[in-house]
């Protein structure tokens, strides 16, 4: 028996199916993901203007709540919020409240007292944004900027935008994700998005120690041998390998990993001639990718960064829109 559970999508969607939080891609429809990509496309144009601002979040306060440090993700969220005309507060919680023993619940109560409208949350523990979404007062939107090994939905969506820009479609594509799948929130969100958007095959390529148990249940095929796995690929996504994986007896050495799973020119030559190379960054040159590939003509790594701002603008404006719609309907029903 399973006790009735609020499913993740019921937490993050309004009654009429709009986003009110953005926690995971699990359970979101192809229409909604396409809507996010289309909205992001329209914001790319904003980034090309001399005055890079739209007034969608004017008067709103967005708090970047980073319990785990991150330069790149935080700065793209900050830029995205500013281009939407929001006021932005950056809090590096990893070095303040929690180190003084304050619980996450208490930290949140204090921040809510500052009348914030949106929390962008990065946390080392899987499910932390769900916990926050379940405990904040109604009207505050939660955007997941990466939680533990669980999800990094904005990263996956910017990757989808990049793929769509270069391939023009998802149908029929063969996409591989290579490297540390086990610890990767990015991979989980990517696999989910690629399946929802209808690619032909998602392949994960990794040694047994870097794969979660029952990996196939994520909706992918598993390949241990990278040379086999590179065949017929339209897109190859490399993941960052953390140095500490050598300590936990997961891998013998960086050298062996690079030889077996590093993307170099000879392995890339096994894929389709127009196969694009992606990486969520920051890259470890010579560990998971050869410099000549990372900087080569098929690399779209820097497009990904640019797209990150547009995707985050799209998600933030859509979630805030959902919250406003809900607030209006609550007022209509005479609730506060």
């Amino acid at each position: 028996m399973t006790t009735p559970q609020p499913s993740p999508d019921s937490v993050q969607l309004t009654a009429d199916g709009q986003l009110r939080h953005f926690l995971t891609l699990d359970g979101l429809s192809r229409e909604l993901l396409t809507d996010i990509l289309d909205t992001a496309d329209s914001f790319i144009e904003v980034g090309e203007r001399a005055i890079k601002k739209v007034p969608l979040l004017r008067g709103r306060t967005v708090v970047n709540l980073f319990f785990e440090s991150s330069t790149r993700t935080r700065s793209t969220f900050e830029l995205a919020a500013k281009r939407l005309s929001a006021d932005v507060l950056n809090l590096d919680i990893s070095t303040s409240a929690t180190s003084k023993g304050e619980s996450l619940s208490d930290t949140l109560l204090n921040l809510e007292a500052m009348a914030s409208d949106m929390f962008v949350v990065r946390h080392a523990q899987s499910g932390a944004p769900h916990f926050i979404a379940a405990s904040v007062t109604p009207g505050v939107a939660i955007i997941n900027a990466g939680d533990g090994r669980h999800a990094h939905p904005t990263q996956a969506m910017l990757d989808m935008l990049t793929i769509r820009q270069h391939k023009g479609r998802f149908e029929g594509l063969k996409v591989a994700i290579v490297g540390d799948i086990l610890h990767s929130r990015v991979a989980r969100s990517q696999i989910c998005a690629l399946n929802t958007l209808g690619v032909e095959e998602v392949r994960v390529i990794a040694p047994g120690t870097l794969l979660p148990s029952d990996a196939e249940h994520l909706g992918c095929t598993v390949e241990y041998d990278m040379e086999k796995g590179m065949r017929d690929l339209d897109v190859v996504i490399m993941l960052r390998l953390q140095k500490e994986r050598m300590q936990g007896a997961l891998l013998p050495s960086e050298q062996e990993f690079y030889r077996l799973y590093g993307l170099d020119r000879s392995k890339l030559a096994l894929a389709k001639p127009d196969c694009i190379v992606m990486h969520p960054g920051p890259i470890n040159r010579g560990v998971e990718i050869e410099s000549a590939v990372a900087d080569g003509p098929r690399s779209v790594i820097l497009n990904q960064v640019t797209n990150g701002i547009a995707v985050r603008m799209a998600v933030m404006s859509m979630a805030m829109g959902g919250q406003v719609t809900e607030r209006v309907s609550r007022l209509g029903e005479g609730q506060p």
């Binding site: 699990d26 899987s126 499910g127 939680d147 533990g148 090994r149 669980h150 999800a151 929130r185 989980r188 979660p212 148990s213 029952d214 990996a215 249940h217 994520l218």
Partner: peptide
């Protein structure tokens, strides 16, 4: 350690 930990990125006890 199984389907749910794999999907939600939880740390599993095998």
């Amino acid at each position: 350690d199984g389907r749910i930990t794999t999907r939600l990125g939880l740390l599993g006890i095998p």
